[in-house]
Design a protein around this nucleic acid. Sequence first.
DNA 1: TCTGGGGTCCTAGGACCC
DNA 2: TCTGGGGTCCTAGGACCC
Length: 426
Amino acid sequence: MSGLIALCDCNSFYVSAERVMDLSLRGIPTIVASNNDGCAVARSDEAKSLGIKMGDPLHLIADKIKRHGIAVRSSNYTLYADMQRRVIAATEPFARDIEIYSIDENFLDLTGFEHLDLVDHCQKLRANILQWTTIPTCVGIGATKTLAKLGNAAAKKNPIFHGVADLSDEHIRRYVMDRIEVADVWGVGAATARKLAGLGISTAGELRDMPLRQARGMGTVVLERLVAELNGVQADVVELVAPAKKGMAVTRSFGRPVTSLEDLMGAVSQFAMRAGEKLRAHGLVAGRLTAFFHTNRFKPDRPQHSVGRGVSLQPMTSDSFELIAAARAAVERAYRDGYEYTKAGVMLEQLVSEESRPRTLFEDIEGRERKVRLMHALDQINGKFGRMTAVPGSQGFDRPWKMRADMKSPAWTTRIDELPIVKATS
DNA sequence: TCTGGGGTCCTAGGACCC
DNA sequence: TCTGGGGTCCTAGGACCC
């Protein structure tokens, strides 16, 4: 297995997904906001050139948005997940295997396609995705994932590549590596970049030439593997099947601060409920649950409080009511009055598949089966009529803390009552 | 005054990713 | 008024054991 790897990445994915159906956004500077309409998490090219940065808090760029007429959308994950599915379908004919790396990026194993002109092959891939979904992409090709990522970064930044940079070509590889900053290499974050700068390493090419031992000594095995990958030695292969999940979390910032135990319990109950749904959807059970909550860290002058309490789940479970009970108990113990809480969450760890769940002594088998059937019925109802149709009363009914999403597009492609309607005019 | 030398397992926290 | 959510991997260091 030493074939070439491609990384295909959707340009400004959330914005491009919004533009599939909403033609009014095309050509207009557009950003998509994070949950709670907090920060900019996707920007169109037009928005980028107006200086909008990834992660910019919306309330700090409000005047810029107004001044330039930037369109804003709340994030619509149902839409993005559906678009992702379509992008993958359009990609499948072009690779032996695909590893879905994130919602907008796929690694392609190009083994078996080497006899083709790979740049041409990847241009056809881009054209196919564009035709099926209208979503533009860029592609990087290389001997390792790290090189494919690097090629992708080059293809996005430099128009001479017309969207496809093939780093299996030595000249192109050298050209790109001498020009890309080391901080833009996949796996090099701020902390590592700072250390490397101290050694006079500022480009991808200089990192490639760093002795492996030095990389190991300065960083960790992670950096050592990274240097190997830049030299074309595979340390990270294309995964054929998704590895088992190790943990899961449901966390949210609140639309407005929570100041009572009752509201906090309500929120955490809802998160535990949702966490149970996710577990069951993956056929998993959890052995440990942690509930956490904290005040606004961006206001250090205000009283701060931050806690997380873990409890072990015995027997291991995916039952929402058991998860809710565990989460509520943790919150009750950790709660302190007199603070404004702005975020909370439930995290699940020690996940194993339902079948390989360890059995406990004195297990109430009948009671357990009843609970499983109840959860199944709950999932069916909520799957059919929408999330939160049937909910436990413990999460409260008015939910003053629920997050804001004031500019959300419809579920164009996944709900029959929200399909776009085309009106004929003559 | 002087207080071994390994192992293993687990957890918290850092770093990084999209 | 207003600053996202959800992951992975690695290491250091503590607890415990012989």
